[in-house]
């Protein structure tokens, strides 16, 4: 094999960074940053992601994952830095993964970021970015931020939040508590409901959850948007059956059910194509009031 042919083959095997950020093909990971140099690189598809993320690939695969590129940077006497850029189909997919990964909003990067001790996460347009350096050192902290700034700058566009997230009432909502998902596995994010998909959550049935402050206490609000009234009705009835609650009211103009479990209150409302759930409220009136606020926000 001649040297030129070998060079061509090696070049073909190198990951094409620009292809990860489709809107900015000129983007490349830096070879060196603040003394850290690339030690390993990877490129992942829906078929191979599970090899890279042990046990956690489902989160991405169930939310429109397209491709990912990773780099591991090394520097003597410093922690490794692992950089991952995940490209999703739509901005709402990137927000879904981000919302299920962060616990608070720190800002500073992309359209939302959690800047923690050793882990920086942010989302922007249809990209979710994770930069891990553990344990954190002063030098790694600066390097992580510099990498984040470069990736942030390389993504020119922003994307809208999912509609269902915009429908959540803002009053009393805890910052950083909003979750968005299109797979029922995450319905249990703030307390176990079921391993079954009793609410019908899926690709065409998005859901959002958030924690709300209630006079020194708190409750969880879940909002599910179905494609039609029949699916919402089925989900509402599934919830009633699961919790042993009796529906009241008119399903055309709004049906309501509530039940007490271990001194906490759980309530559900079905209105047109929406299902509103309040879980883990301190009283029935608190649960009902939060349901009413959510319904008002929808209307």
């Amino acid at each position: 094999m001649t040297i030129p042919v070998l060079c061509i083959l090696l070049t073909m095997q190198l990951p094409q960074d620009g292809a990860i950020i489709s809107e900015n093909p000129s983007f490349t990971f830096p070879d060196e940053i603040a003394g850290w140099r690339i030690d390993d690189r990877g490129r992942w598809t829906p078929e191979t992601l599970y090899r890279y993320i042990n046990g956690g690939a489902e989160l991405f695969l169930s939310h429109g994952f397209e491709a990912a590129a990773s780099r591991r940077y090394a520097r003597e006497d410093q922690p490794e830095i692992t950089v991952d850029i995940f490209r999703m189909q739509r901005p709402q997919d990137a927000f879904a993964v981000y919302s299920l990964s962060r616990e608070r909003e720190d800002g500073g990067f992309g359209q939302g970021a959690q800047v923690g001790t050793g882990l920086l996460l942010f989302w922007k347009h249809r990209y979710f970015v994770s930069i891990l350096a553990s344990p954190q050192t002063p030098a790694s902290r600066e390097a992580v931020r510099e990498i984040a700034r470069r990736i942030d700058a390389a993504v020119p566009e922003t994307g809208p939040l999912p509609d269902v997230v915009s429908m959540l009432p803002p009053e009393g909502r805890r910052s950083g508590s909003v979750r968005f998902f299109r797979h029922h596995a995450w319905q249990n994010v703030y307390g176990f409901i079921s391993t079954e998909n009793l609410l019908g959550i899926g690709d065409d049935v998005p859901a959002a959850a958030a924690r709300y402050n209630l006079d020194g206490d708190a409750a969880t609000l879940l909002l599910i948007v179905c494609p039609d009234r029949a699916k919402a009705k089925a989900g509402f009835r599934g919830w009633c059956a699961h919790y042993g609650a009796e529906a009241r009211g008119d399903e055309t103009h709004g049906a309501f059910a509530s039940v007490r479990r271990e001194d906490r209150w759980y309530a559900a409302c079905h209105l047109e194509k929406f299902i509103v759930l309040v879980h883990d409220a301190p009283s029935e009136s608190d649960a009902q009031a939060l349901v009413e606020r959510a319904v008002a926000a929808i209307e």
Partner: peptide
């Protein structure tokens, strides 16, 4: 005690 992030690992 809590998993988050791309690799279900957050040093926090």
């Amino acid at each position: 005690f809590h998993g988050s992030g791309a690799h279900h690992f957050n040093p926090e």
